[in-house]
Design a binder for these strands. Structure first.
Length: 270
DNA sequence: AAATTCTCCTGAAGGC
DNA sequence: TGCCTTCAGGAGAATT
C-alpha cells in the first residue's frame, strides 16, 4: 500500500527513464479504475514528450507541454519500467510505451487512477485544495497547532486530513504519534504548541527516513525495477498490537479510530 | 458545517 | 484440503 515514501521512491525510480522521452503509444487494458479511464487517453498521450515527473501528495504527475497525466496508485498500485515486449500480467491495466520500454501500471484492487488534465497540475481540482507537503517548510508546528486549535477531532484524524497536511497515511500517522508521545485519540484542541512542534518534527523525520531507505513496504510494494521494497525502517508500533512497547515494555494496544487500525503505547502516549 | 460513516476492490488470512 | 467469511485501506462521496 503505497504511502508517500513509496510514491516518492517510485517517482525517483521512474523519472530517469521517462524525462525527455516521447510516448510511442499508450495501452489501456482495463479502464475500470477508481474513475473510468477516459477512452481517448492513448490518443492524447501518443507523440507527446514527457518534460518532468513530479509529485503532489500521493499523486504522480507526468508533465507534458500539453497537459499532465495524474497517476494515483491507490491501495495496491505499482509502477515498473519494463521492456515493452514483456507480457502483461493479470492486473497490468495500463502501459505507457516509450521506445523500447514501457511504464506499466499494476493495480489488483483498482483503487488507483489515471487522469488527463490539459492544464497545469496545480490547477487540478483534486490538487488545488490540498494542504502543504509534509517535507516542505510550509508545514511546521505552528500551522499544525493552528489547524488543531480550531477543531476538535482526534489528533490522528487531524494529521491524516489532506486539507491539513498531505501524505500522512495510516502507517506513518501511527508511527509519528508514537515518536511524539501523543495518544492518537487526544483531542486536537487539547494539545499545546510545544507538543505540536514535536509532532510536526516527527512526521517529517519518519517520512524522510522512509524515503531515504527507499520506501518501507507492506505486502506488495515493488520498486520501479521490480525489486521488492524492504522493511528497512523498523515500524515501532504499526501492526504490533500486544507486543511490548520498544520504549517501556508496556503492551501495545490496537484500536479502531476513524475507521483505521490504530496502534499505540498506553504508557508512553498521552 | 464539521465530523463521521460509507464506498470502491481483491488478495491474504483465518475458521470450520 | 477447500470453501466461506472477514479484513485491510486512500480518499472521494454521502450522511449525520
Amino acid at each position: 500500500m503505497p504511502e508517500l515514501p513509496e510514491v516518492e521512491t517510485t517517482r525517483r525510480g521512474i523519472a530517469p527513464h521517462l524525462v525527455g522521452r516521447t510516448v510511442t503509444t499508450a495501452i489501456v487494458r482495463d479502464a475500470r479504475l477508481r474513475w473510468p479511464v477516459q477512452a481517448d487517453l492513448p490518443q492524447r498521450l501518443a507523440g507527446r514528450t514527457i518534460q518532468a515527473v513530479g509529485r503532489r501528495a500521493k499523486y504522480l504527475l507526468l508533465e507534458f507541454a500539453e497537459g499532465t497525466l495524474l497517476v494515483h496508485l491507490g491501495m495496491s498500485g505499482s509502477l515498473r519500467v519494463l521492456p515493452a515486449t514483456t507480457p502483461p500480467g493479470k492486473h497490468d491495466h495500463f502501459d505507457l510505451v516509450v521506445g523500447e520500454h514501457c511504464l506499466r501500471l499494476r493495480d489488483p484492487r483498482r483503487f488507483g487512477a489515471l487522469l488527463w488534465w490539459p492544464r497545469q497540475p496545480r490547477e487540478h481540482p483534486r490538487l488545488a485544495a490540498l494542504g502543504p507537503e509534509p517535507l516542505s517548510e510550509a508545514f511546521e508546528g505552528s500551522m499544525l497547532a493552528a489547524a488543531g486549535r480550531s477543531r476538535r477531532v482526534a489528533i490522528k484524524a487531524l494529521i491524516m486530513d489532506a486539507k491539513v497536511v498531505v501524505g500522512v497515511g495510516n502507517i506513518y500517522a501511527n508511527e509519528a504519534l508514537f515518536r511524539a508521545g501523543i495518544h492518537p485519540a487526544r483531542r486536537s484542541d487539547r494539545i499545546g504548541p510545544a507538543r505540536y512542534e514535536r509532532l510536526a518534527t516527527e512526521i517529517k523525520a519518519v517520512l524522510a527516513e522512509a524515503i531515504a531507505q527507499g520506501g518501507t513496504t507492506l505486502r506488495d510494494f515493488q520498486r520501479e525495477d521490480g525489486r521488492p521494497g524492504y522493511f528497512r525502517i523498523q515500524l515501532k508500533v504499526y501492526g504490533r498490537g500486544g507486543e511490548p512497547c520498544p520504549a517501556c515494555d508496556a503492551s501495545l494496544l490496537e484500536t479502531r479510530l476513524a475507521q483505521r487500525s490504530t496502534f499505540y503505547c498506553p504508557r508512553c502516549q498521552r
